[in-house]
C-alpha cells in the first residue's frame, strides 16, 4: 500500500510538469497579449497610448521576452520561491488572489458534493428498490429537471424570491457588515445563513445525475446472483440491500470524486457570478478574457493539481473499500 502510494505520488510529478506547460502556453495562443488588451481598453475610454508607452509596458510586464523564458521564470518562481507571479489585471500578486479564493472554493465544492451525495444516494436507492413506483417516477422527473435546468437561472430566481419575499440578500457569502470583520461566532452564523443557497444550487446538478447513477448501478446489482444467495439465507430485504448491492453500487461514485472539483469550478461560474460568490471560477473567467497569463495559468495549474490529487484520493478510497483491487495490487 505504501509503495503504491509512493509510486502514485511520483507519477504526479511529470503530469504536473506537462499540465503547467499546457496551461501556460494555451493561454498565450490567442493573438495579442495583456498589453494590447490594456491599450485597447484605454483607447476605448479615450486615452491614446503612444508606441513608446506601449513598449515601456511590454518591458515592465516582461512581455518582450520569448514565451519560453517567461514560462521558466514563472515555474521557477513557483517551485523555488512559492511565488505564483503577478496579476497584471488585478495589480496584485497571484498568491494573494489565490489565498482569498481557493479555500472558499474548495469548501463550497466539497460541501456541495457532500450535500449532493447525502440527498442523492438514499433517493437513488429508493428509486431502484421501488422501480416504476410512483415515487420512482417523481424522483426521475425531478432528476431530469435538475439536470436540465441551468443552475444560474435557478440562482437568479432564488435570489430574487428571497429578496422580494423575505428581504434577505442571498448575494455573497457574508452580509455587508461582516465582510471585513474578523472571524467570530456571529460571522460564522452569518456565513451559514448564506452558504446553504449556493450549496443547494451548486450541488443540484450533481445531485440529479448522482441519483441516476446510483439508481442504474443498483438496478444492475439487484438481480445479481450474490443478492439471491443472501436472500436465500433469510436476510431481511433492508439489511440485504444495504450490506451487499449498495456497497457495490456506490463504488463508482468514489472514482468520480476527482472530476467534481474542476467540474464545480468551471460548471458553476455563472452561479458564482450571479450570487457574487468569492470563488475562483469568476476569477479564471476574467483572467482568460483579459489574457492575464500568470493568473490564468496559475489557476489552471492549481485546479489540475487538485484534480490529479482528487483522482489519487478516489483511487485510494477504492482500494480501501474494494478487496478485489486491494489484493490485485498486493499480488503484483
Amino acid at each position: 500500500m505504501l509503495l503504491y502510494l509512493i509510486r502514485r505520488i511520483l507519477m504526479l510529478v511529470p503530469i504536473l510538469i506537462l499540465m503547467s506547460m499546457v496551461a501556460f502556453f494555451l493561454i498565450q495562443l490567442p493573438p495579442g497579449d495583456f498589453v494590447t488588451f490594456r491599450i485597447e481598453q484605454l483607447r476605448m475610454s479615450g486615452i491614446e497610448v503612444s508606441d513608446n508607452e506601449a513598449q515601456r509596458l511590454m518591458v515592465q510586464f516582461g512581455l518582450d521576452k520569448p514565451p519560453m523564458a517567461r514560462y521558466v521564470w514563472w515555474v521557477s518562481g513557483i517551485v523555488l520561491r512559492g511565488n505564483w507571479g503577478w496579476s497584471l489585471q488585478w495589480n496584485k500578486s497571484v498568491n494573494e488572489i489565490l489565498q482569498e479564493r481557493i479555500p472558499m472554493t474548495v469548501v463550497i465544492s466539497l460541501l456541495a458534493l457532500l450535500f449532493s451525495w447525502v440527498v442523492a444516494i438514499p433517493i437513488g436507492i429508493y428509486s431502484a428498490t421501488h422501480q416504476y413506483s410512483p415515487m420512482d417516477y417523481v424522483a426521475t422527473f425531478l432528476g431530469f429537471i435538475g439536470v436540465a435546468t441551468p443552475g444560474f437561472l435557478l440562482a437568479l430566481i432564488a435570489a430574487w424570491l428571497l429578496f422580494s419575499q423575505l428581504g434577505f440578500s442571498a448575494l455573497g457569502l457574508h452580509s455587508p457588515e461582516y465582510i471585513n470583520a474578523p472571524w467570530s461566532t456571529a460571522k460564522f452564523v452569518d456565513l451559514l445563513k448564506h452558504l446553504w443557497l449556493p450549496l443547494f444550487l451548486v450541488g443540484m446538478g450533481n445531485t440529479a445525475s448522482t441519483i441516476r447513477v446510483v439508481r442504474n448501478n443498483l438496478l444492475d446489482e439487484l438481480n445479481k446472483q450474490y443478492v439471491i444467495t443472501a436472500r436465500s439465507k433469510g436476510l431481511s430485504e433492508w439489511k440485504l440491500v444495504w450490506k451487499y448491492p449498495v456497497r457495490m453500487a456506490i463504488n463508482p461514485l468514489l472514482s468520480t470524486v476527482s472530476w467534481v472539483l474542476p467540474g464545480l469550478v468551471s460548471g458553476t461560474v455563472l452561479i458564482d457570478i450571479v450570487l457574487s460568490l468569492q470563488t475562483i471560477g469568476p476569477v479564471l473567467l476574467r483572467a482568460t478574457l483579459a489574457q492575464d497569463m500568470y493568473l490564468a495559468g496559475s489557476v489552471v495549474l492549481l485546479l489540475s493539481a487538485l484534480t490529479v490529487i482528487g483522482a489519487l484520493i478516489g483511487d485510494v478510497l477504492l482500494v480501501l473499500v474494494d478487496p478485489r483491487i486491494r489484493f490485485g495490487r498486493l499480488g503484483k
Binding site: Y226, T229, S232, G234, S236, E237, D322, P323
Partner: peptide
C-alpha cells in the same frame, strides 16, 4: 415473500446452492 416467517424458513429449514459459484458470493465481503 419478504416477511419474517418465510425468512425464518430460508436458510434455516431449506438451504439452497446455486449454479454460479463465481457470482454467488459478494466480492466485497469475506
Amino acid at each position: 415473500p419478504s416477511g419474517a416467517k418465510i425468512r425464518s424458513i430460508r436458510g434455516k429449514q431449506i438451504g439452497m446452492i446455486f449454479q454460479e459459484p463465481m457470482t454467488a458470493l459478494s466480492p466485497l465481503h469475506t
